[in-house]
Nucleic acid binder design. Structure first.
Lengths: 215, 215, 215, 215
DNA sequence: AATGAATGAGAGTTCATTCAT
DNA sequence: AATGAATGAACTCTCATTCAT
């Protein structure tokens, strides 16, 4: 509050960091690169962040919570689970698909080490997975999702699919609309890949799977 | 390449690197850490590897090609697609689930930067995704998989789910059997999450999805 | 070039480098030796010089151009060639004779390799030899120097004599006044070593020589 | 004697060293470069030389003494001084002019540091300068050289001129016959550069020089 | 609050030398 | 005598961080 002007500078540094980290990678980026891009002196960085790592962590904490967590309500808590899953997918792919640099930082740079990964998991991912899990359980209650679904696996699977779409999009040379994948992805998640005429040999497998799942 | 006398020594260095990189992270690991753990002098590392990065890259190239590519045949080319997908999942989760350090290197350390990611994608992931894609197309031909499935999306989704299972397993404090997830995961992939009594509001969504997919 | 605040610090580093390189030799000198002697941190060196070699090169470029090239006019362009040659010799021997460390760097360290030698030749020596050559040609025009003198050989000879005086002085244990050699050296260069009563066997040679000597 | 075959290997190493040192410079050359060029294993070098420096020193000691000192007699002790100086110049320029790599090593690499320079001076150069000095004194006795010549200065000057001719030849891009310079160089040394009609202003200078020389 | 020159610890890498074979 | 894989000391250079201005 009292440091409104400073917040502007802090913000400039964070935005500069996203660009710099996305292009050169976190370790290869020098603090002075971020400072130059932000238009501040090297030393100024340390008035807003404890150290280089703190820039990355803050990036994640602030941008993430601001952009994603704040929208939890917007996923229409009243809607049925399939619609809510679709909304989550659209939001996820839409946000990252609209800012490639940010996506690179989140998909690649923030996963530098188990240390970051753990922090990532502990603070934000846990909440995000909890949201997805709640929606899935809601779906089971309302009958829109299979009751025999292992919730944890389904939750991670849903996130894993979205995550891979983003990573693949980042690494692709050809630009395409990431958000447009929300529909097909949710459709696949809900309906599955199996066709109506499964090969004969597939049967026993599926039965085995169903049996094994029952643990 | 420049393998001199003892492949044994090269191998010892690689195994030491897996452990060291997994525990401290690639960037935080010092070459001398790897040397000490391998029981060789610092300089010896450079008789077998061009530089520190070459250790990481070799780790990936050799372990990967040896363990996974070499097993392409073992996925029983004769079997129906669902069985083959299950075999792939079992292999994937089985391999990484049996060596936590290796899994950490593959899930975390090798994804340090877009540079590594691109290499990762270009050399091995591409082949792996191609294998999955072929199996999916085979399934469509034999009718075991939906003919209207967007193959690319389904391929990435299948990989994404497996990948997330591994990452989640790595970061989990509780040890559990990663390979045991192969069944539920493939089941979910094939049958989908949707239940038999979808909520009324879900219908239009699914129809929209199905429509959009048709492009 | 990249001179930041204090030319003073840059200068301190250069002066320290002269002393360190002269005493231990360029290759045996460590950058930290130069830093310590200059009273700066190791890293500070790199704020003023690209690398260790750049220190040596800068030493040569700056000291040389400052001390010698800038004095081209001072060699009294109006004076007759012999007087100008004497002025050049006095300057040459005077400058290097007044700073033994600098002389060591110029006579020994800067001639480490053909790479340095070529740079040395290309940038400064060429100009210096050109100056000597012009003076010799002037002398031929005004009749003070033999018209049949091969200019290039005479130019190199003049420089070679001066150069050897400096090198010999450096390596000598006994300290003596280098600049005092300017007179004898120029006298020898102008008048030659031959006496008035050549030995009998020398006749044929000397006659050929004597023909030209007719001053 | 007893190690005739070894002498062959020692010789091969020395010849390889001349080539390698001449091309890359002594410090930039690796012992293994010399070994490879000599066709021996790295370790073999140490059966013949104490260390890397010993190769350079031996190069100088053996090649030099063999090629130059051994020829002291050949400079016809009976001949008059001018003829002997001419013979020395021809030998000096002839030897180095016939083997560019050897010349590079002697002119450049052996002058790496004052340490080498001093050794160079102490062992061989001193003898060489002594020979030149004796010839000059002989010339003064027989009247073929000026009696008022400062012997030391004249000796160093004679060597300095030859030395500069070699260095200049090494660094020159254009190949030319170094030995052909012996005549002009000795002629200049004996007869001097002065012409028959010195400019008026030159007089006082020359007188001053002559006076100063008299110390 | 802001600067940016200065710091100095630290790491990768090279290569002369050794020694078991 | 010869080998060449192995050693490890030593050096250059980088860059996150500090602090006097």
């Amino acid at each position: 509050m009292a440091r409104r002007r400073s917040d502007d500078k802090r913000s400039r540094i964070l935005h500069a960091a996203v660009k710099v980290f996305a292009r050169r990678g976190y370790f290869a980026s020098r603090v002075s690169d971020v400072a130059r891009r932000a238009g501040v002196a090297d030393g100024t960085i340390y008035l807003y962040f404890r150290n280089k790592e703190d820039i990355l962590v803050s990036l994640f904490d602030e941008v993430m919570s601001e952009h994603l967590e704040g929208r939890r309500r917007q996923v229409e808590p009243e809607a049925p689970a399939p619609a809510r899953l679709r909304a989550i997918a659209e939001r996820h792919l839409g946000l990252l698909g609209s800012n490639r640099d940010l996506a690179v930082v989140f998909q690649v740079e923030l996963r530098q080490s188990t240390k970051f990964m753990e922090r990532f998991t502990a603070s934000w991912l846990q909440d995000y997975l909890a949201l997805i899990g709640e929606v899935i359980e809601q779906g089971q209650r309302e009958g829109s999702l299979r009751a025999d679904l292992p919730v944890k696996v389904a939750t991670k699977a849903f996130f894993g699919v979205l995550d891979e779409m983003v990573t693949s999009w980042i690494l692709s040379r050809k630009p395409y609309d990431l958000a447009a994948l929300a529909g097909p992805v949710v459709d696949l998640f809900l309906r599955g890949a199996a066709g109506s005429h499964p090969a004969r040999e597939a049967r026993p497998l599926l039965r085995a799977v169903a049996a094994g799942r029952k643990r």
